[in-house]
Amino acid sequence: MKIKNFLYSQKVAPYVFVLPFILSFFIFWVYPLITAFTMSFQDIGAIKSEWIGFANYAKLLKDNVFHIAVWNSVKYMFFTLVLLIPFPMLFAVLLDSNLVKAKGVWKAILYMPALTSVVISGTLFRLMFTEYTTGQMNMITAALGLGTYKWLKMGWSGMLALLIVACWRWTGVNMLYFLSGLKSIDTSLYEAADIDGATSWQKFKYVTLPLLKPTTVYVLTISVYAGLAMFLESYMLWAGNSSPNNIGLTIVGYLYKRGIEKNDMGYACAVGVVLLVVALIINFAQLIMNGTFKKGED
């Protein structure tokens, strides 16, 4: 009887339902976060660790390879935002309109890359971008009379390869976010706009864009983090964590290099804390600018 009372209690039930999330949040997020933060002030050894204050952070300031990694991650994040927000939005609007036939087929085609493993697709992209003459990209450029390139040895083409993988993989996912956002827009608004004689562009600009804003802000927020935390794509494209002159090294790649490859966990934690701080600053800045925290909106 007591158990029944407990289960049917309106006061207790909500806590029971959120308990799994709270537990996993504390065990897998809060606890590692606090531990990583404290470890970033230590020199972690196999047998004993010692407190070294801000030494790890001071070293980060002088570490050129870390600076390259940060710059690469920021560049990658910026370009993924430029490519992976407007184009998926455009595709979503097109798929939501009457201009496109066989919508299900297009949705499936664009979404399918997200279902593949990055390990497999990354390996295939690596082979496509090989500098050898039989590589797909080199065969295309050679057929166009542009010669062959060492794609994965130059800064611009290495970044291009990373962005092509990102677009191939994420366009469909972001498009689905925008499609679901579009579905929630009341069609009577478009009808009203039609009656007022609005053109397609005006409808997009004054109805679709403002009402899609919550979706856009969500996609922007997760894309900022995904861009800064990218690792696996780079790891697969260069068949390991080392790329020529570190053109493909990312912040997380550097964290892995320090923590796992060189067994310097304290320094790796400092890298991780910097990543978290950078991601939080960028995201809070864009959320504040987008007015997400203002009361009474949406």
Binding site: K150, K153, S242, S243, P244, N245, N246, K257, E261, K262
Partner: peptide
């Protein structure tokens, strides 16, 4: 050794041989 190998392979050899 890992530091030497890594720096030589990712940076130095690419600079000198490319």
């Amino acid at each position: 050794s890992p530091t030497i190998n890594e720096y030589l392979c990712t940076t130095t050899l690419n600079e000198v041989l490319e």
